[in-house]
Design a protein around this nucleic acid. Structure first.
Lengths: 221, 221
DNA sequence: TTACTGTCAACTGTTGACAATTTACAAAAT
DNA sequence: ATTTTGTAAATTGTCAACAGTTGACAGTAA
């Protein structure tokens, strides 16, 4: 049996809030009251405050001194800017994955591609996007760059949040999208950083445009 | 007179520690004891812990659950990876600056170029690098992208730390470096994102190589 | 000597209380 | 009606105390 590294309350609370924000159960702009949340979760305010700091780094909440925390907005311009950055960082990660991957890294990459393909076939939108995030996780693993990994991990919840907001409309998109990942794996296997970079950029760009066109109803500005 | 936004203790402590780490007054690997620091600064452990979370995001300290905080290491591979990311993000910021700048943005950009030139002429290495950071700050301001601005701001202390560690050897480098910024401003004024991108990439690449060759003595691995 | 085990001091994790600040709201003035 | 001012309640900031965990080290057994 594998014992957990005994997460402290900070991270547990952060995880809990993170999920609720991503799923839209907490709406943009909504205030998060420390006292109230502490009562609800049965912990003191200390861990709550630490959790809010964690979420601020992931851009899920906005922290204003002496005015507390609120769920961050999901504006068009934010989506725009997030994907601009994601395009560059994912492309960089892909190039690094091509260069630094060992043979062992290929196994999980191929496995997550299969998962993507399977979900696309079944039309299971929710799991499909989970599989895509998993793909990037293993790709980043292969890139052997902890700093880049962490930056991307910090941006991941925002990406998830955006995708969740447009999940309903994504069904027909699946099969068209799979091609990107099939190509990406092909070039990662072949060791071609330029084409792999290009494919991932194209995917992220496509994702960006889809998000911009399909989250309008959920967001503020 | 301009009143401060009444910083809370969290940020003041973070600022204090940040400076000490950047200047090498706290050495890599050194533990930071909450209780001791709290006594030294005359505050309780609450703000200290919050400050440590802030510094963790800036990668200045490493936080291990139940084992406290220690000053992060400055390894060759970290420098390598940091600049890889900086190259992409600064290039992106530069392109955005070219596209989104107003006429008003040009004034501080030109002013900080003058400062760079003046410091290079005087051979004032320390202020020279301050001026360079200032240049990027105003450039990012012109790029009109708060998300990108924040990512870069989070990485800034690490870059400063690296540059501080190799400051002594940088004197002869100054005049050669100025050209990059003169060119960058030229292309920003002319509205040429491709060449501006290229210049900044070249600068950052150059900076990276210099750092890698001149911080060896200060770092661990 | 070397490896194990138990104990203790030093820390971090968590809490509840108190102080300072902000917000909401009602009353007064324009 | 609209703005201003004053006051109370709600909320965040800070602290100090207690609980739980970790790491070091001395003592014991091989």
């Amino acid at each position: 049996m594998k014992f957990k590294p005994l997460e402290n309350l900070d991270e547990q609370v952060a995880e809990y809030l993170s999920n609720r924000i991503i799923r839209g159960q907490l709406s943009p702009g909504e205030r998060i009251l420390e006292t109230k949340l502490a009562r609800e979760l049965g912990v003191s305010r200390g861990p709550i405050r630490a959790a809010l700091r964690i979420l601020e780094n992931k851009r899920l909440v906005k922290l204003v001194p002496r005015r507390g925390a609120q769920v961050s907005e999901l504006s068009v311009s934010f989506i725009d800017r997030l994907y601009d950055i994601l395009i560059e960082l994912l492309a960089l990660a892909t190039r690094k994955a091509v260069q630094n991957r060992t043979r062992k890294d290929l196994t999980p990459i191929r496995r997550s591609l299969s998962k993507i393909e399977a979900c696309a076939l079944k039309g299971d939108t929710y799991d499909y996007y989970n599989a895509i995030f998993e793909f990037f996780v293993v790709e980043i693993e292969a890139a052997k760059d902890p700093l880049l990994a962490r930056l991307l991990r910090d941006l991941e919840p925002s990406a998830r949040r955006i995708q969740f907001a447009s999940l309903a409309r994504r069904k027909e998109d699946l099969k068209r999208n799979v091609v990107y990942f099939q190509d990406a794996v092909k070039y990662i296997e072949a060791g071609d950083p330029i084409l792999a970079d290009k494919v991932i950029r194209a995917y992220a760009q496509n994702e960006k445009e889809f998000a911009l066109n399909n989250t309008r109803t959920h967001i503020k500005k």
